[in-house]
């Protein structure tokens, strides 16, 4: 148990999310990486890959060129099928973190569009706010004199 946990802590888990407007399916992505020594789990929104970080990078190099602007990845804390968050073990319902992923997945087509048509013109940086100078003694004295009249 101890050794397997140590091995697990050296591994990386990464999720691959397909933008809803992509023509690919999670199964097509899985076929590309199934030959690699990784745990590959197919889900409705993409894949979960778990294994050696360098092999995961190789897997991403194979997957991402298929649709570079519509495939998104991020790391995940829990390994796939972890009983602490797995729906099967928890008796159904969404797993922790799913609502967040679901929300972000709805925004992915906009991000894809932005990546495909980057803004060509340069935007000048916003003007720096003027530094406020402290009120000089003379000015303060003038204000006091005026109000005292």
């Amino acid at each position: 148990m101890m050794n397997s946990s140590k091995e697990q802590s050296l591994k990386e888990t990464r999720i691959v999310v397909l933008s809803p407007d992509s023509r690919l399916t999670p199964e097509i992505l899985a076929k590309k990486v199934i030959h690699l020594p990784l745990i590959v789990k197919v889900t409705c929104w993409g894949l979960i890959l778990s294994g050696d970080p360098s092999i995961i990078q190789n897997a991403l190099k194979e997957i991402c060129p298929l649709d570079p602007t519509r495939i998104f990845t991020k790391r995940r804390g829990y390994p796939p099928g972890d009983p602490r968050i797995c729906r099967f073990h928890r008796g159904g319902g969404p797993r922790p973190g799913f609502h967040y992923l679901e929300f972000e997945a709805t925004l992915l087509p906009l991000i894809s569009q932005a990546l495909e048509t980057p803004l060509t013109k340069e935007i000048s940086p916003p003007p720096k706010p003027l530094k406020k100078k402290p009120l000089s003694v003379k000015a303060l004295r003038k204000i006091i004199d005026e109000t005292a009249k």
Binding site: S5, Q8, S9, R75, G77
Partner: peptide
């Protein structure tokens, strides 16, 4: 989180 949940 990974460090915490996969730590022995």
């Amino acid at each position: 989180i990974q460090e915490r949940v996969t730590n022995p």
